[in-house]
């Protein structure tokens, strides 16, 4: 107890104010989503109930719903191959979905590697590991470009040779083999080498989905940013902390409260850890330049 008081943990204030459950609401929902999706895929091989066949690269649900990973399809296209009709319909459905809800919702609500890197980030925080190497957050776009050019040059769906997401997800469903070593490697990399290294700097899949969600309407916003007490907890938990500042601190510069940066993963963890309930899910259009006269807005609406 004294230790916690000594070095206040991220989100402790929110837990005090709102209670544990409300301070972990979106995190719990996200984990339910991630494990739920994985569970649906596992029902087939483990229990013989075939709701879904396949894996995150392409799946076929109940014999009606095809879902194709557009990034894999794009690499295949670069290699000179067009999918069959079902594969193409799958691409369209997935693209439409992430165009609406935000591209990197894939990262925070679906991707199984996110659980691994979140765990590494959490442990890093608990163990007080600071520093380490750093790479530009633009590195992922270079890697994204490389995978597409490389696919075109080699004629192979290049990233799929090493993609840890598919190795882990496919491995859990079809047999893991030595894929666990890659997962451990990413965990240790994020823990000791680089803060948020994999998902935040290197992964081209996340980079691709970020671009897909460039104009997606579902966003996180800080409409009550005037109430911010600068506890910095949101910056601490955010996997992409650079996206918060313009929205949270942009009042003076006339920047609206909606987080428009495409790399926001819409994970909602900032909503959880904020004791002042500054953040909320909203639509991008709901973005007034100024949110300061909070009192007046309230009186007007009465």
């Amino acid at each position: 107890m004294s230790q916690i008081a000594h070095q206040k943990r991220v989100g402790a204030e929110a837990v005090e104010e709102k209670g544990w459950l409300r301070a972990h609401k979106w995190l719990i929902l996200r984990r339910i989503s991630q494990f739920g999706i994985l569970g649906l895929f596992l029902l087939g091989p483990l229990a013989g109930i075939w709701f879904v066949k396949g894996n995150l690269n392409y799946s076929y649900t109940l014999g009606v719903l095809p879902l194709t990973d557009p990034f894999v399809a794009l690499q295949s296209l670069a290699a000179g191959h067009v999918p069959e009709t079902l594969g193409l319909i799958g691409v369209a459905i997935v693209l439409a979905f992430y165009l609406l809800v935000g591209g990197r919702v894939y990262c925070s609500w679906v991707c199984p590697v996110n659980v691994v890197t979140d765990l590494a980030g959490w442990l890093r925080d608990r163990l007080g590991i600071k520093g380490g190497s750093s790479l530009s957050r633009h590195t992922r776009y270079w890697i994204l470009g490389m995978t597409l050019v490389g696919s075109a040059l080699t004629g192979v769906v290049l990233w799929e040779l090493v993609n840890p997401i598919s190795m882990l997800h496919r491995g859990l469903i079809f047999g893991l083999g030595t894929a666990w070593t890659v997962v451990i490697a990413i965990f240790l990399f994020d823990l000791f080498v680089m803060t948020r290294g994999w998902c935040g700097r290197l992964c081209p899949v996340g980079a691709f989905y970020g671009l897909v969600g460039r104009w997606s309407p579902v966003r996180i916003s800080a409409p009550k940013r005037a109430a911010c007490n600068d506890c910095m907890d949101c910056f601490e938990v955010c996997p992409e902390p650079q996206v918060i500042r313009p929205a949270l601190k942009g009042e003076a510069k006339g920047i609206g409260p909606v987080i428009l940066a495409p790399n926001c993963t819409n994970c909602g963890r900032c909503i959880d850890v904020c004791s002042k309930d500054v953040f909320t899910y909203t639509l991008r259009f709901n973005n007034p330049a100024s949110t300061a006269p909070l009192v007046r807005v309230q009186t007007e609406s009465k």
């Binding site: 399809a73 496919r170 030595t178």
Partner: peptide, 28 residues
């Protein structure tokens, strides 16, 4: 040569094979 550019590694062929003939290559 073409197969590695066209296959998206979904494993649907593995699932629909009634004799469990096919498997997906593991990293090793």
């Amino acid at each position: 040569d073409d197969f590695l550019g066209a296959c998206i590694r979904c494993g649907l062929c593995v699932r629909d094979c009634p004799y469990n003939t096919l498997e997906l290559a593991k990293p090793e």
